[in-house]
Simulated assay, not measured.
Amino acid sequence: MNIRKAEKSASTGRCFGYAGIDPGDDSARRWVRDAIALLNRDAHRSADTHLIRLSLPALKGIDIYLKDESTHPTGSLKHRLARSLILYGLCNGHIGPRTTLVEASSGSTAVSEAYFARQLGLDFVAVMTATTSASKIDAVERFGGRCHLVDHASQVYDAARQIADDTGGYYLDQFTYAERATDWRSNNNIAESIFTQMAEEPHPVPRWIVMSAGTGGTSATIGRFIRYRGYDSRLCVVDPENSVFYDNYLSDDCALTGKKGSAIEGIGRPRVEPSFLPCVIDHMIQVPDNASVGAMMALSDHLFRRVGASTGTNFYGLCWIAAQMQAQDQSGSIVSVICDDGNRYANSYYDPDWRAAQNIHPLPYRDQISAFLKDGIWEELAT
């Protein structure tokens, strides 16, 4: 009987295969085992990220916390996701010792994936929009990755698949696999970390957790974890302008598409991503771009260091919820996330000329949030 050998294409999501390798040679399997061990050692060398409590005396009975994900080795929340996505590919047989890794990313995920690809000795290609900040492109390249730029956010998916096909590589596809690559029940995911760090606080179970959505994976993890552990916490997802997640939450229409990409780098999408799970979300808020950047500036002033615009989106939603709680004489804690380091955006969101060119005018919102942090009074702005 003839034994047939088949080589499977990693770019289609199937195994990288052992065609051409002696059946008695388990070198590829041994490489995968060593690669997983390497990623696990990296995780053990990294301490958990800080949970910062803001000092806001004007908000009586309401405690505000920020999970600072900017302290990861690659500087953002996406460090967790990148490790999970690569482990997912390794354990599912998609990544081998010569596999080119490919991702569609607006920046931070690509930076983190380039970091891990370099550790594994693998080639990495990031597909991103031409408007991605120069500092993120530089970071990918410094980790040995290559950037392929496209004009519109809707083009990144097909371009990434094509590059994976052309190179015989593997498309990591954060937008599909983010919600399943991370074990939402435990394994030190961000939700478990938040609740563990909150355990000794005056209000250990947050009344609200506020999170923006890029892939939807982090909000899915938090929402599932809350239900799995039976907590009374509510999840609020904040969404920037020109993202379809908010409209999908209201309409349940998964075919929605947007004509324009989000101006808030790293969050908001022009289509409903597979990892976005509205059924685990309790409330959504659509945040104007001016408000995202204004809140970014106000929080940076308060912390004496820069945060990014997606953190501003989170913080604006958090302040709005805190104002509603205060108006209803409620007490409790609210937790949100510092997504990345704001110094990455020195030439964009923190540059007045760049903001003017993008028609972003954040100063009224910066003043609104600054006044709220100081006096606890929420003044609605005319739109």
Rank of each mutant, 00 (worst) to 15 (best):
G107F: 01
K67F: 06
P97D: 07
S70H: 04
L149D: 00
R80W: 10
L101I: 03
V111E: 01
D138G: 13
S84H: 13
A114S: 12
T74C: 12
D138V: 15
A130R: 15
L149I: 02
L85Y: 00
S135K: 14
S76Q: 07
S135W: 12
L120F: 10
T109D: 06
S76T: 06
I62Y: 12
G89V: 00
L59A: 13
N92L: 10
L85G: 02
T100G: 08
L59T: 08
Y88R: 12
L101R: 05
G93Q: 01
I62N: 07
T71D: 15
G107Y: 03
E103C: 05
G75I: 05
A139P: 08
R146C: 07
L59C: 11
G107M: 01
L66W: 08
Y115M: 10
I95T: 00
I137S: 07
A134D: 15
E141K: 10
A114K: 02
A117L: 06
H72V: 09
A130L: 12
L77Y: 11
T100D: 12
C147G: 03
L122W: 05
H148T: 05
A104S: 12
E113A: 09
E141C: 13
L149S: 02
V102Y: 07
T109Y: 02
C147E: 02
L87M: 14
A110D: 02
T99K: 03
C147H: 01
G145M: 01
R80F: 11
S105F: 04
D63L: 10
F143A: 04
R83T: 09
R142S: 14
T109H: 04
E141A: 08
D123L: 12
L149G: 00
E103P: 06
K60R: 15
V125D: 08
H94N: 11
L81I: 09
G89H: 00
P73C: 11
S105A: 10
I95Q: 01
Q119H: 15
S108C: 12
I95K: 00
R146G: 02
L122K: 01
S112M: 04
R80Q: 13
V127Y: 00
V150I: 03
A58Y: 14
G144A: 06
E113K: 05
V127S: 01
G93R: 03
K136V: 10
E103I: 02
V111T: 08
A104P: 07
M128N: 09
S105I: 04
A110Y: 09
Y88L: 11
G93S: 06
R83C: 14
I64S: 10
R142G: 12
R80G: 08
G145I: 00
L87N: 09
T109L: 09
F124E: 02
K136P: 06
A126S: 14
T131S: 14
T100W: 11
H94F: 13
L59R: 10
P73E: 13
G61P: 12
E69D: 11
H72C: 13
L59F: 13
A110Q: 07
P97K: 04
T100R: 09
K78W: 07
R98D: 15
N92W: 05
D138F: 14
E69M: 10
V102C: 05
Q119W: 15
A139N: 06
G61T: 10
T99V: 06
K67G: 09
S70V: 11
Y65G: 09
E113H: 03
K60I: 14
F116Q: 04
K78D: 10
V150M: 03
S76W: 04
L122G: 01
A126C: 12
A134E: 15
K67V: 07
Y65H: 12
P73M: 11
G89F: 00
F143G: 01
T71F: 14
